[in-house]
């Protein structure tokens, strides 16, 4: 029994026989979400409307995209506190360019460029200079906030080409929002990368035991650098989608506090802040759960202060789950 539990906690176990799938944490997580959705659809009549479901998925994508990036980082027991501010800062810099040139392609590429640039700075500091991830990314967070406010003088960048928000905040066939589609596509790709490629397996080795990974011939410096760049890419994609949705970019769109939801999504999805564990599927489910919590509280018109209480409890529960999974196994 305890063996099964460990298997379940281990997250991704590839190519297992079908029967193993039921022991997998993600399967149970999915069943939980379905159960919650069923209960909620009975309790709240408008919950299951198509509009609300996509609304919910849009919210999940805002949490989920950076959470996918963080999953890669958290597997090495690292952290990237700059994900939300990187998103805001890159969006601002890119939108400034887009506003000046009225060129959507150039603007979107610049948003991604700046996000990757900040990711590279994080990666270089952690992987090559061997600095502590918490401190480096906190510094980048501060830097981002500084640049954001300096470039905008505290206001937001508007006056973007009309096609920008039409494309990136629109919906396919008037039903599926683009951001949801992008989120799912990115999730599928990153899942393949993490679970089925050499890079993914080497990343897990680095996360479980960096010294052993080096003995196994893995260039851990390269791995560490890459994951922070991946974090940057995710922040950039999120920046494009969020800026399009708000049809503007400003320092207000990525408060540092948004990090709470992101890390909660990862840990709910089976990633451990102690490293070595995590899966994209889990993180996607985690993001959906976090979005459901916010959405349900809005729909139920829960008292403001109670929402804080609930969120606080969720964070405590999530942290305790992480402890349960990692508790030193006796005997």
């Amino acid at each position: 029994m305890s063996e099964k539990m460990r298997e379940a906690a281990g997250g991704e176990k590839n190519g297992r026989p079908l029967s193993e799938l039921l022991k997998n944490g993600n399967t149970i997580m999915m069943l939980l979400i379905i159960a919650a959705l069923l209960i909620l659809s009975i309790a709240i009549p408008r919950f299951m409307s198509v509009g609300n479901i996509f609304n919910l998925l849009v919210q999940a994508s805002v949490i989920g995209l950076p959470a996918i990036g963080l999953t890669f980082i958290i597997i090495t027991a690292g952290i990237d506190l700059s994900l939300p501010t990187n998103m805001a800062c890159s969006a601002i810099l890119g939108c400034l360019i887009m506003q000046k040139t009225q060129n959507v392609v150039l603007g979107v590429l610049s948003i991604l460029f700046f996000a990757v640039l900040f990711g590279c700075i994080n990666g270089f500091s952690v992987a090559v200079l061997k600095m502590v991830p918490m401190i480096v990314t906190l510094a980048i967070q501060t830097l981002n906030t500084g640049i954001s406010n300096f470039c905008t003088q505290g206001t937001s960048i508007g006056g973007l080409p009309e096609s920008f928000s039409r494309i990136f905040a629109g919906s396919i066939g008037g039903v599926v929002p683009v951001s949801v589609l992008v989120f799912l596509v990115v999730a599928v790709i990153m899942h393949q990368v993490l679970a089925k490629t050499i890079f993914g397996r080497q990343l897990f080795q680095t996360g479980i035991n960096e010294r052993a990974a080096r003995v196994n011939g893995i260039n851990t410096t390269k791995i560490l650098f890459c994951i922070y760049v991946i974090g940057g890419v995710m922040a950039g994609i999120n920046g494009v989608l969020t800026a399009a949705r708000l049809n503007s970019a400003g320092p207000t769109m990525g408060p540092a506090s948004a990090f709470n939801n992101i890390v909660c999504a990862c840990v709910l999805g089976g990633a451990s802040v102690w490293g070595g564990k995590g899966s994209i599927l889990g993180t996607v489910f985690g993001s959906i759960v976090m979005a459901i919590i916010t959405n349900v509280m809005n729909l139920l018109n829960v008292d403001f202060f109670a929402t804080y209480v609930v969120k606080g409890l969720v964070i405590i529960v999530v942290c305790y789950l992480d402890v349960l999974r990692n508790r030193v196994k006796e005997n």
């Binding site: 080795q205 010294r211 052993a212 003995v215 196994n216």
Partner: peptide, 21 residues
């Protein structure tokens, strides 16, 4: 236990770990 193997991984995962390419 220090740098020889990946304790939380299974036997087959440990055996293939250095030979992924």
């Amino acid at each position: 236990h220090d740098d020889g193997c990946l304790l939380p991984w299974s036997v087959w995962e440990n055996m293939s770990a250095p030979n992924l390419p």
